[in-house]
Design a binder for these strands. Structure first.
Lengths: 169, 169
DNA sequence: GAGCAACTATAGCCACAGCAATATTCCTCG
DNA sequence: CGAGGAATATTGCTGTGGCTATAGTTGCTC
């Protein structure tokens, strides 16, 4: 009997992470759709709504999401067309424009958030006792801090902007 | 001072999961690329290589990956064109075809796996002491079992096939 | 002040994947 | 045995997002 690489505990570990993430994302997606949003649109709304003035420069929005700058252009195009966002010229730098959440966008987010939180509680945080939950979250935080999303390549100290790279946590 | 929804611990929790996953996936992606593979191609190779006969019916491959059946058709097209896979007619059911890993595909996987494992260890499993790691993995397993990837909608008992739905863990 | 590099947003082009439609094959029931 | 329905793989169409080029803007250097 030869050793089977596929049973390697490291493979198992990433499998758990990937499948937990995928399953949760799928749950989120169906709930987003109930409110006419996609996952990226929801994330954009969240990032903007938590920013001062409900707005963010396109570049900063790209840095905070998993999108490229051109990707942000397209998403903002769609969401502006749908009335959730609008563009605003940056007074101090004519290269930049702000994406601003409209009242309609804020309303949409308010409608979507309660169900979102309910899903998180039902399928994620509520699945574990408090100690187990904090243990898992501590582990995830350590991993997150290590891989540091935003520092994709092996740069020593990216510091892409003044904003904290991961304000979500 | 009003309560800020964005500081809700549930939001923080999913943020950790999402960012840890995203960061790790990004690390994986650059290593895959060093060996001319994409993430889905690597996953396809893994799923096939661990299956008896290094083969799987297209539908079963779709069920085991995050792809739809048409998605599998395209991926297998590309990988067959690249010589990593080949199609084989199913003798017992002429509707089905097998995707079979070629020796070249197995070689590619063998070349890619060591670096993959190294990345997992460096950025994921190696970031935590053994007890913290198992605590986190136990939590992830509970969440994974709850959301049950493959049962996307609210069906009570999907049981899509005889195969275990998540052989990765 | 002129020149030049860096930055910002966008548009063109392409790859990828999902949905729906289609063709073929299998199975079950009458 | 035949008909109808389920299953399987594929293709067309579409939406999405990344990469690169481009145009406009800023700031730095000399």
């Amino acid at each position: 009997m030869e050793k089977n690489v596929f049973d390697d505990p490291r493979i198992t570990a990433v499998g758990l992470l990937v499948e937990a993430h995928a399953g949760l994302s799928a749950r989120f997606a169906v709930q987003y759709e109930e409110h006419g949003l996609s996952a990226v649109e929801f994330e954009v709304l969240m990032r903007l709504a938590r920013s001062p003035g409900n707005q963010l420069r396109m570049t900063d929005l790209a840095a905070q999401t998993s999108l490229s700058t051109s990707g942000v252009t397209r998403v903002v195009d769609r969401m502006e067309r749908d009335g959730l966002l609008c563009r605003r010229a940056c007074p101090s730098d004519r290269r930049s424009s702000y994406a601003v959440v409209t009242p309609s966008g804020l309303r949409r987010l308010d409608e979507t958030l309660p169900g979102h939180l309910r899903i998180i509680e039902q399928w994620f945080t509520g699945q574990l006792e408090p100690e187990a939950l904090t243990a898992m979250l501590d582990g995830l935080r350590r991993v997150r801090d290590a891989v540091h999303p935003g520092a994709t390549a092996g740069s020593t100290d990216p510091a892409p902007s003044d904003e904290p790279p991961s304000p979500l946590a």
